[in-house]
Design a protein around this nucleic acid. Structure first.
Length: 370
DNA sequence: CAAGCGTGGTT
DNA sequence: TAACCAAGCTT
């Protein structure tokens, strides 16, 4: 196809497929979830890869597959063990939804991942992208799998100027993929679009001179690849003051508690903490009063031993960390006193792992001074 | 539809 | 360095 044709016409679909697939067959990365087409493995990898880099996912995927090689293994596992293996990967509802859906597959589908759009889309945590990814990659079905890469790549190739931050835009790109997708190899076609976005057609400074489908790209022809995709910015996040305490009893055991089963960091463990609002009382005093009330016992907050900021996508925590003492707490499923060496057995958010490290450093200094 | 939901790497 | 980004889903 020459450029005069490109200017006025839709792209040559067959030539585009050939150029894209040839490139992918030659240049695709050797990734652990590409060893076979086991729908379960494809599924797990796709969930882990949501909003998460390939290099980050690899070690998590390998450990996860070692612990839970089959649908049955994951279905029968304790949620706490699943969360522990997910610790640090973020978006923890992915892990809980995945296990819930895997249990559904184990019980309702005899352990076989559904191969049709209706049933697979009904599984928790499986949205339009993941459904299309599993159906195309594991089952060879010509379904679109539109992620951020695909929207960026196609916005440039086809000069689509819809705002990719808007949910409604996904349908535009799905329609485009339905036009373009190779029915001979839907799996490679979808993966190739994503691989191209990851390796060549990157968000800033795309490597157009290395691009296998440069001759099909309307944005490159117009010199406007840097203007695409159109993506509006999101609002700034909120800032919240947190006072947190690591409380020890006379045996040196630490008080930890399990977070709510909904919302932020659901079902992970944490050190007791409170959101602080501007008041007359110090955050230390507010924390001591709140925790004494929560655990119906006298809590003594000693000195501040650390400070840290933790940035989420939509929220920033400004944390003051204290150490203190507690006696005679009633332990429940959600409140425990655990020895120092057992802390690592529980799934914690990264922010609370950092608090624990500051606490251990503080303890080390106190010992050195004695 | 917009907001909520994590973390670490890159620019 | 603050902002942006990375194979999205749920409510």
């Amino acid at each position: 196809m020459n450029n005069s044709q490109l200017k006025d016409n839709p792209i040559d679909i067959y030539a585009f497929q050939q150029d894209l697939l040839s490139w992918f067959e030659k240049e695709q990365r050797d990734l652990p979830w590409r060893k076979d087409k086991d729908p379960y493995k494809v599924w797990v990898s796709e969930i882990m890869l949501q909003q998460t880099r390939v290099d980050t996912v690899i070690p998590y995927f390998l450990r996860f597959m070692e612990a839970f090689p089959t649908v049955k293994d994951l279905a029968e596992a304790e949620e706490e063990k699943v969360l522990k293996l997910w610790e640090g990967l973020g978006y923890y509802s992915r892990a809980r939804n995945l296990q819930s859906a895997v249990r559904e597959v184990h019980e309702q589908y005899d352990g076989v991942v559904p191969n049709n759009i209706k049933d697979i889309s009904a599984l928790k945590g499986v949205g339009p992208y993941t459904a299309g990814a599993i159906l195309s990659i594991a089952y060879g079905e010509p379904e679109p799998a539109v992620d951020g890469n695909v929207m960026r790549v196609l916005s440039r190739i086809l000069m689509i100027e819809n705002d990719i931050a808007k949910a409604s835009s996904r349908k535009i790109f799905e329609a485009a993929v339905r036009e373009l997708i190779s029915h001979d190899n839907p799996s490679y076609f979808n993966q190739a679009l994503m691989e191209l976005g990851a390796l060549i057609c990157t968000p800033t400074s795309p490597s157009c001179l290395l691009c296998p489908v440069r001759d099909h790209c309307h944005a490159f022809y117009e010199g406007k690849q840097a203007e695409l995709p159109v993506k509006t910015k999101k609002a700034k996040n909120k800032h919240v003051q947190i006072a947190s305490a690591i409380l020890a009893n006379s045996k040196g055991e630490l008080l930890i508690r399990k977070r709510s089963n909904k919302g932020l960091l659901a079902n992970l463990w944490e050190f007791p903490n409170e959101e602080i609002h501007l008041q007359i009382e110090s955050d230390k005093q507010q924390l001591q009063n709140q925790l004494s009330k929560s655990y119906d016992t006298h809590v003594k907050i000693n000195q501040r031993i650390g400070q840290l900021d933790h940035v989420f996508t939509h929220l920033t925590w400004h944390i003051n960390l204290y150490e203190g003492e507690i006696h005679s707490v009633t332990e429940t499923d959600n409140v425990k006193l655990v020895p120092l060496e057992d802390i690592k057995k529980y799934p914690f958010p990264v922010s609370h792992q950092k608090m624990f490290m500051q606490y251990m450093q503080h303890k080390g200094k106190v010992l050195a001074d004695e």
